[in-house]
Design a protein around this nucleic acid. Structure first.
Lengths: 342, 342
DNA sequence: GCATATTGCCAAAACGCTTTGAGAGGGAGC
DNA sequence: GCTCCCTCTCAAAGCGTTTTGGCAATATGC
């Protein structure tokens, strides 16, 4: 069923039918109703391609995921996508996913632009001085950044959490519990949020006259296994940390497993605070929940970014947002253990 | 830069330029070379929409994810997507994602078909007598099923793992270790793979004169938290299970946490075997790895399904495949503990 | 040397929609 | 009754490709 066929059956011109269905004002209410009913009855839907070609809008939002060397797929990203994609659908947009080898990332953006495949993009996990920002500006594609590139002047529209402040706050909380030997299990510091978290961590230590130990600050892909290995190594060192901060619940599980395998008690021998993206398959719930955490639902962030981008594309003025993490006291923290004289 | 512009600059017709760039034979090698160089220099790319409209092919593959009531996003799905999407990209296809409320699922398929937005689809997590199979046949859209609908005669093309046999094998392994009190922590049994796993589990028990206990077989969304809660409950019952099988590493982590929180030792007091989709952020590695597992890399499955679908669309004959899980002995299993006379 | 293939190119017609510009019909204003 | 202005509708021209059908020019077969 094409527009023309539908028009023929109604004894109207394609023009009128098109206008009626697209909500243009210059069509009689009665005619419109008749057209709408017919369209529904015949199950007519405009052919996406034809519409896109005619309007010049693709009605699609792109998400480019670079598959890193490590070939790690980020479940956090998946949760973000779920939030975003739901909004796209409800607003009539399609979600275009491009999982490409990291080396092809820039090329992929260029292609998307040249072929006009998408109306806009979300930039994930911005790095320092992220080249994608300039690239997308050059390509004149609307975009919203999830995260912040502090170093970029004339900042693009972004949504971020207050990573620095959160980690400073969490660290201070642990300091007040008497802890003095800290460790930070961070995400990859090529990505700006990780840097900001470290800065918050270091700031809190410094504010309280404590020194950060480079060997106790690790940045890595946030896998359970990585976290386990690193924590195990730390715990086997002399003067192991009694307080660990980590960047995701996934790593937190690895840390927790290591602590237990080392024969220690979480929240007792070793305290742990994690950033918690509130992943649907890994909810930090209970009364109190297992982890003391800095929570910021990534899914909501996805939905919000989607809305911001859609508004941005529509030419509306959108302003960036910085969300606060919620601090949740759980069972993974407690007073620093008494020093056992070696 | 449009095709016409490019043709004008070259002093050729759009026809010839199009043919040259699309590899048709009826163009002089010399001319073709000239065209290709010019296209590269000017950075010409065919407009996706125009091409789609002209060819009638959307060069996109759709994945519809129903967002359930529980609003759980499946990280396993994300890993599958990564595998699939990479293949699509490399074959010139785009990946279309539609995350919609479960209630809109059928409607979404219908819309995708009517608007001709995709050339084919992957059906995820088939249920018993899954209505999507008939629907997609009716809509005449090519598709590949990830999983099996045993009940459907004239089965569609599918890729599955031998879930029944694997779970039978794993259960038998535990029986041979002397275990007699079992529990199964399954995925949602509305989905066919979960049923098959249970059948394998029950079969093994029956083969060895053991009875399955309905209260020790639970199906649920595979979250860490769910797994923790259920396991905790079991462990607090009289005659708790000494052997637990679970459907994903995520639930396995929950089980493990519960076992430890109950003051028990994994592989010692309680044995655990998990199905392992080999998620990139949760690799079951080590020597031996922490979990005894039935491993089947979901990412490879995604890539394979993608290839099957692309071949299917191209009209090639593709046959379904059933993959075997690899049995990996890890540290989470051991001989049944001696019965302590209560 | 003539008829017949083959090669290399082009003009024009799709593809199915939106949008522009125009025009018929009817009501209002004088 | 005439003009003017709405309201509603339409024909036609895009949008940027691919594809069909054809036509010169050259090569091939006898």
């Amino acid at each position: 069923m094409t527009l023309k066929e539908l028009a023929d059956r109604l004894g109207l011109s394609p023009t009128t039918v098109s206008r009626a269905l697209n909500g243009y004002p210059e069509v009689n209410a009665e005619t419109r109703a008749r057209i709408e009913i017919a369209a529904r009855d015949y199950g007519y839907r405009a052919n996406t391609m034809a519409r896109k070609l005619a309007t010049g809008r693709s009605m699609a939002i792109g998400h480019v995921i670079p598959l890193s060397n490590h070939q790690m797929i980020n479940p956090i990203f998946a949760e973000f996508m779920a939030g975003a994609s739901e909004i796209y659908s409800s607003e009539g947009y399609e979600t275009l996913l491009a999982a490409v080898p990291a080396a092809n990332e820039v090329q992929t953006y260029r292609e998307l632009a040249r072929r006009r495949s998408v109306d806009g993009l979300i930039v994930h996990a911005p790095r320092l001085n992220d080249p994608r920002v300039d690239l997308l500006r050059e390509l004149e594609l609307p975009f919203v950044v999830h995260g912040r590139s502090v170093d970029i002047e004339d900042r693009p529209v972004f949504l971020d959490t207050n990573n620095r402040r959160s980690f400073e706050q969490a660290t201070t909380y642990l300091i007040e519990l008497g802890h003095t030997r800290f460790a930070l299990l961070n995400g990859m510091e090529t990505i700006s949020f990780a840097r900001r978290r470290r800065r918050g961590f270091e700031q809190a230590l410094q504010n309280n006259g404590l020194r950060s130990d480079a060997s106790r600050m690790v940045d890595m892909e946030m896998t359970e296994t990585n976290a386990y290995d690193v924590t195990m190594k730390w715990l086997n060192e002399p003067k192991p940390p009694t307080a660990i901060l980590t960047s995701s619940t996934i790593s937190a599980l690895g840390v927790a497993r290591a602590i237990r395998d080392a024969g220690l008690q979480i929240g007792d021998d070793v305290s742990l605070i994690t950033h918690d993206d509130d992943l649907s398959f890994m909810r930090n719930v209970g009364d109190p929940p297992p982890f003391t955490a800095l929570q910021s639902p990534i899914r909501d962030a996805g939905a919000k970014c989607a809305r911001m981008l859609i508004d941005h594309i529509a030419g509306k003025k959108v302003s960036s947002e910085i969300w606060k993490c919620e601090f949740i006291e759980g069972r993974s923290t407690g007073p620093a253990p008494k020093e056992t004289p070696a």
